[in-house]
């Protein structure tokens, strides 16, 4: 009875659960370890800026303006100074927290809202789907920038006391409100695809409630396309915030963000001060790369077939 013999291709490691197995698989990949290190670096900068610089980013001296970082990572200004004479290293390090907080808040809220609505719409169909899908259409029709600008005008001129919530709150709200639709559409499509599969019918035949089917069977499938778009969305949120910053309605001063630095840096990049533009850009690319690699590996690790 060859039918009954075990498939012996895989080495017999004790498998525990989908998530534990996924973690074990990911810990073996060098690119994932590299991405994790970058993420750790960025998160540490966000959490403890004091570890990386002892300068105050708001203490700017005009006579020190536009000092190129000739000494590179040593001396008075390790990364030079910007157009107003502020220490650039300190500016970047202190700009990390608002940037990361904003990006993660927007992504997490968007994914939560989008997935919930998408799964509900796809699973229940009928009028639930009709309402959610029409709302989706309405939000898609409004361009992100226009919606955000209109919404943020309400908060304009309020100033900020340096409180993180006040600094990034309005921008996060605006970007979430006009950013959840993509996740919703992907989740809805994946749900519609999954809900008619035999294993969902089997669960229903066993008497499973809707909630159980949605969490156990539909959600793991709906997450797959979403993990693929989260990293790129993360990048676009940071860039969108930069655009809002140009209009003065993004992260509220005196706080700064990578987006603000990017948009300020473009003014100087042509004049030989390319580092003012290049360093935030490299940071942004590295961060997006890290999230993309991590998300990609997570998706592969969560798919037993690819393991």
């Amino acid at each position: 009875m060859t039918e009954l013999t075990a498939p012996t291709a895989q080495s017999e490691v004790p498998q525990a659960s989908l998530w534990k197995d996924a973690f074990r698989t990911m810990a073996r990949r060098p690119d994932v370890i590299f991405a994790t290190l970058i993420m750790l670096f960025v998160f540490t900068m966000a959490a403890f800026p004091g570890l990386f610089t002892d300068k105050d980013p708001t203490r700017c001296l005009g006579r020190d303006a536009r000092l190129r970082p000739d000494t590179w990572f040593t001396g008075e200004h390790p990364l030079g100074t910007d157009g107003f004479g502020c220490d650039f290293a300190a500016t970047i390090v202190h700009g990390t927290r608002p940037t990361i907080t904003l990006a993660l808040t927007v992504i997490i809220l968007s994914v939560l809202i989008g997935m919930t609505l998408g799964i509900l719409a796809g699973y229940f169909g009928r009028w639930v789907d009709a309402i959610i899908s029409r709302a989706l259409d309405v939000f898609i029709v409004i361009p992100l920038m226009m919606g955000a600008i209109l919404l943020l005008s309400l908060f304009r001129g309020r100033g900020s006391s340096g409180n993180l919530l006040e600094t990034v709150g309005p921008a996060a709200l605006a970007l979430t409100l006009f950013g959840w639709m993509e996740f919703c559409r992907y989740a809805r499509a994946a749900t519609i695809e999954t809900k008619n599969l035999d294993y969902v019918t089997a669960a229903r035949c066993l008497g499973a409630r809707d909630r159980r089917i949605m969490f156990k069977h539909v959600l793991p499938n709906a997450i797959v396309p979403i993990t693929a778009i989260v990293p790129t969305s993360l990048g676009s949120v940071i860039v969108a915030e930069a655009a809002l910053a140009v209009l003065g309605i993004g992260v509220q001063p005196p706080a700064t963000s990578w987006g603000v630095l990017l948009s300020n840096g473009t003014q100087w990049a042509g004049g030989g001060y390319i580092y003012l533009f290049g360093i935030p850009l490299v940071l942004l690319i590295l961060t997006v790369f890290a999230f993309a690699t991590f998300g990609d590996a997570l998706r592969d690790a969560l798919d037993p077939k690819l393991r």
Binding site: S17, L197, D198, G207, K216, L302, D303, P304
Partner: peptide
């Protein structure tokens, strides 16, 4: 009642959730 009557599916490739042990 579902305890008393159950269904066996035609296609064994779609009737098992690939993400569950």
């Amino acid at each position: 009642v579902r305890r008393d009557i159950q269904l066996v599916f035609q296609d064994p490739y779609t009737s098992l959730n690939p993400r569950m042990t």
